[in-house]
């Protein structure tokens, strides 16, 4: 389990990184961020990239910046940055509540937020967060900059809208209204493992009724997304057990479940039902 040989490039600036990426992308060149997904895949020789563009020394990509409406997360920001709230907004608490479900402490020291998005594991918590909150993803290349809406970013299991020569330079998450409630729940068999289903929900209360509900679901389909059927079951209703159950049921029905050796379709729906309801309960 030793990786196949590759040429390593260590750009110091974004422009340099993009230039190298443009050069090597056609020869199976890839970005190396935290390496917490890429290196295992290379160890199994499931990937044998000929070039790696190591962005760990690129200046300026390591920042988390809030401008009052948007939180911008650079490509070198590690999971561990979110152990404590990064911004005085419910979003900061949301991110720090979610981050502890990602892998384990030593992996969070290295793995990056943007790397998770680019890797696009169906069960990635950060992918779920950006899908639920309709974040904007900023792709850069020597050809210029593209803003990609989260709902258009994920294309399938470990597949995204990024072109080979594009670097995911940053993720922009909308700050949340101060009265937003959120809940997160995920199911896995063993601590730190990828979730077999995960849900993030947010909503506000308008005169005691649910408004602007977002129900995000990860790990259940090829990529995370908002489940409009579940949101419809919530909006305008008073939060409570019956309503939450109805929303969870709607989500379980709406999905096109992923199947694998430990999870058939029926079981995946069971899990979806559970995580959506529990996320809603947590939010209440």
């Amino acid at each position: 389990m030793k990786p196949a040989p590759f040429v390593r490039h260590v750009p110091k600036t974004l422009d340099e990184a993009l230039k190298i990426l443009a050069d090597v992308a056609p020869q199976d060149g890839r970005v190396l961020a935290g390496g917490q997904s890429l290196v295992p895949i290379m160890a199994f020789r499931l990937a044998k990239p000929a070039h790696l563009v190591d962005i760990n020394e690129v200046v300026g990509l390591d920042k988390v910046i809030s401008d009052g409406t948007t939180l911008t997360i650079g490509a070198r920001v590690r999971h561990a940055a979110f152990h404590k709230s990064v911004v005085d907004n419910p979003l900061g608490q949301l991110l720090s509540a979610v981050v502890r479900h990602i892998a384990h402490y030593p992996i969070r020291m290295r793995g990056t937020f943007c790397g998770s998005l680019a890797h696009a594991d169906p069960a990635s918590e950060w992918c779920l967060v950006v899908a639920t909150l309709d974040a904007t993803l900023v792709a850069k290349s020597t050809r210029g900059e593209r803003l990609i809406a989260a709902k258009d970013f994920f294309a399938g299991i470990m597949s995204t809208a990024l072109a080979e020569d594009e670097l995911l330079a940053e993720a922009r998450l909308p700050l949340l209204a101060s009265d937003v409630r959120f809940g997160f729940n995920e199911f896995n068999r063993r601590a730190g493992d990828f979730a077999m289903a995960a849900s993030l929900v947010t909503y506000r209360l308008n005169a005691g009724k649910i408004a602007e509900a977002r129900v995000g679901l990860g790990g259940a389909e090829s990529f995370p997304r908002r489940i409009v059927e579940a949101e419809a079951a919530l909006n305008g209703k008073t939060p409570g057990d019956t309503v939450f159950r109805a929303a969870a049921e709607a989500a379980a029905k709406a999905i096109d479940p992923l199947e694998d050796h430990q999870t058939n379709a029926e079981y995946r729906r069971d899990l979806v039902r559970a995580v959506v309801r529990r996320a809603l309960e947590q939010s209440a």
């Binding site: 390593r8 390496g35 290196v39 020291m109």
Partner: peptide, 23 residues
Amino acid sequence: EHGICGACTIIVDGEPIRSCLMF
């Protein structure tokens, strides 16, 4: 060599990390 067992955990610049997942 794929990040799960932790036998390779060391401290680099004050951070505990998996040394099998870093070059």
